[in-house]
Simulated assay, not measured.
Amino acid sequence: MKQRKIPMRKDLLTGEMHPKKEMVRIVKTAEESVAIDPTGKASGRGAYVALDPEAVKAAKGKQLIEKAFSIKVPATFYDELFAYVDHQKARQELFGTKR
Rank of each mutant, 00 (worst) to 15 (best):
M17P: 00
G44M: 03
P53R: 10
T97H: 12
F69E: 03
I65P: 03
S43F: 11
M23L: 12
E66I: 02
T14P: 14
F69R: 00
K28D: 07
S33H: 13
F77V: 03
L81G: 07
L94E: 14
Y84R: 03
R9W: 00
K10C: 14
I71V: 03
H87W: 05
H18N: 14
D86Q: 06
P7K: 07
I65T: 11
S33R: 09
G40D: 09
G96K: 05
M8W: 03
D86I: 01
A83F: 12
A35L: 15
D79Q: 15
E93H: 10
D52E: 09
A59Y: 02
G46E: 13
K98F: 01
P53Q: 01
Q3W: 07
A35F: 05
A83P: 08
R4N: 14
Q3V: 13
I6K: 03
R91E: 10
V27M: 10
R25N: 11
K21F: 15
R45N: 13
K21W: 11
K60P: 04
R9Y: 05
K10G: 07
V34T: 06
R4I: 09
K98L: 05
L81T: 04
L64S: 04
V73W: 11
A75G: 00
V27S: 15
K20G: 04
G40M: 15
K72R: 10
Q92D: 03
T76V: 07
D79P: 08
L64P: 04
I36K: 12
V56A: 06
R9C: 09
I36W: 10
R99T: 11
M17C: 06
R4V: 12
P7A: 11
T97F: 15
F82N: 00
A58F: 02
I26D: 12
D11L: 07
R45Q: 12
A47D: 06
Q63D: 14
S43Y: 10
P19S: 02
E93R: 09
T29S: 15
K72Q: 06
F95S: 00
E80H: 08
L12P: 06
L94N: 04
K20V: 04
D37S: 15
A59Q: 00
D52R: 14
K98T: 08
R4P: 02
Q3A: 15
G15D: 00
P53A: 11
T76G: 02
Q63G: 05
A59S: 14
R99Q: 15
I6P: 06
I26H: 09
K67R: 09
